Amino acid sequence: MKKLAVGPMTTLEYNEWWVRRINDNTPKSNQKNSQSIEEYLRVVPSKLEIIRQDFERRNTDLKKKIGQIEEEKINLRLDIDV
Rank of each mutant, 00 (worst) to 15 (best):
Q35G: 07
N59H: 15
E13P: 01
V6T: 12
I50V: 11
E72R: 14
E38W: 05
W17G: 03
K73M: 13
I80S: 05
E39S: 14
T26N: 04
V19Q: 08
I69M: 14
L62I: 10
K47G: 03
N75D: 12
I74P: 00
S36K: 05
P45Y: 00
D81V: 11
I50L: 10
V6H: 06
R20Y: 05
N25Y: 13
F55V: 04
Q35R: 15
G67S: 14
L41P: 01
I69L: 15
G7S: 00
E49V: 08
T60W: 03
R42M: 03
V6P: 01
F55H: 03
S29A: 15
S46N: 07
N25C: 05
D54L: 12
K64I: 07
Y40C: 06
S46Q: 06
R42P: 00
T26Q: 11
Q53C: 06
K65M: 05
R58I: 02
W18C: 02
L62S: 01
L62Q: 07
S29R: 06
I66S: 05
M1T: 06
G7A: 02
R42I: 07
V43D: 07
N25H: 11
D81C: 02
E49L: 06
N75Y: 00
D81I: 12
I80M: 07
D79F: 15
S29H: 12
E49W: 03
K64E: 15
P27I: 03
R52K: 08
L12P: 03
I69C: 10
I74C: 00
N23K: 05
R58H: 04
N33C: 03
E38V: 04
I74L: 07
T26I: 09
Q31G: 10
L48D: 08
